Computed example of a mutant assay.
Amino acid sequence: MKASSPFVFSTGTIGYPLMFVLLIWIVFWAEVRFGFHLNRFGIQPGSIEGLRGILFSPFIHSDIRHLFNNTIPLFVLSLSLFYFYRPISWKVLVIGFFSTGILTWLIGRPAYHIGASGIIYLLASFLFFKGIFSRYYRLVALSLMVVFLYGGLVWYVTPIDPEISWEGHLSGLISGFVLSLIFRKRIASTPKYEWEKPGYNEADDLFMRHFDENGNFIENLPENDTSDEEESKIQYHYKETPKKD
């Protein structure tokens, strides 16, 4: 008897992360190919015009190194989000996208803040805290994996490098934590086997497998339907059970 898993791998699970990564690479290619300079579309705190960066800044990167450093974490973390938290994945992503950008605009230095780093911190923060809150071994393991792979990210939420938007990183971290609290009760339940469910009786379960939906006894079962041990239990139970009119 198998337990159904709350985690399902679908086309969107890998398709959406690939789409995100492809978008940021297309934007960077267009900048290089056509000589665009899109930094001015980043988040510029204190400027009304700079609010447009909330939409555009995650897709803009300063150079190939910046882009490459964001590509793998963005893919891995977004893949984890869509696999483990599929029912709430888009809510987390959309709400976190805007909250990270708005918070960066509110607390950031007067400069152009660009890159997908804020979204990466959002995802890492959400996956870590949500897994801890769940107390479900798979999700806790995911939290530990996030710490192992990206634990060093925590240093960049402080102003240790003037060329790095630590404000964007901090905004993503805060947004992910808040969202993990908001969706704290939306946790995948631990799958249960049939024998773990209340009121389960093994003999009755094996006995009932020998009847079709109309209540007729099935004499010839598939060879691999039950083991010899189970078969003997069924026969014994059947003989001992009084026939009902």
Rank of each mutant, 00 (worst) to 15 (best):
R40L: 04
W195S: 06
G215F: 09
I164L: 11
S5L: 15
F9L: 15
D228C: 09
H37S: 13
R184G: 00
L142I: 03
K91I: 10
A30K: 12
L77I: 01
D245T: 10
S78F: 09
T71W: 03
S125L: 07
G131W: 04
L77N: 01
F68M: 10
N69R: 07
Q235G: 10
A188G: 06
P87M: 08
A30C: 12
G176V: 03
R109N: 11
I182P: 00
K243A: 09
L81K: 02
W166V: 06
E194D: 08
T226S: 14
G151N: 05
A3D: 13
Y150D: 04
Y85K: 02
H61G: 01
D204T: 10
T190C: 00
S89R: 05
F41K: 00
P58A: 04
P87N: 06
S80I: 02
F7I: 13
P45S: 04
G168N: 01
V8S: 15
G118F: 06
I120E: 07
I26Q: 12
L23N: 15
W29D: 15
L173W: 09
I72V: 15
K239N: 11
I164D: 03
L103C: 01
F82W: 07
S180Y: 03
P17Y: 08
Y200P: 09
T241V: 07
G42V: 02
V76I: 10
G46M: 00
P162D: 04
I48C: 03
L122K: 06
I132Q: 05
I14V: 14
P6M: 13
D245F: 11
G131E: 02
L51P: 01
I95H: 05
V92W: 07
V92T: 08
R138W: 13
N220I: 09
A111K: 14
E49H: 08
M19F: 14
I95V: 13
E167V: 02
S80A: 15
N214C: 04
K243I: 12
G215E: 12
K239D: 11
